[in-house]
Amino acid sequence: MFKDLDPLLHSQLRLAVVSLLISVDSAEFTWLREKTNSTAGNLSVQLDKLSEAGYVSIEKTFRGKRPLTTCKITRKGVKAFEDYVNSLKDYIK
């Protein structure tokens, strides 16, 4: 039924992450986890999938001694999200 919808985005958590990232300039892992109400493990796996597809860029640094993961949506990710929303509109019509 949903063959035109990008399978990578057609998943609740990944879609939530991309929707959040499209609304901000950059976000830390902890902020995404809090907003999506997901577990660290699950979020980490889904971010890796989005990163492998080139939809999200992930920067791993340190704040003091703590690891810091900052995520940003890429141009490819923005395009994929726009296409996804446009496909969604066609289904709703």
């Binding site: 939530a16 929707s19 959040l20 609304s23 901000v24 796996v45 709703i92």
Partner: peptide, 27 residues
Amino acid sequence: MSTENQLSPKQSLDVITSMIQQAKGNT
């Protein structure tokens, strides 16, 4: 939030709007 469940178009839109709503007001 679960990962691989099949979303209906309405559910997808709900996810998008609720997340955009969450991101608002962070300035």
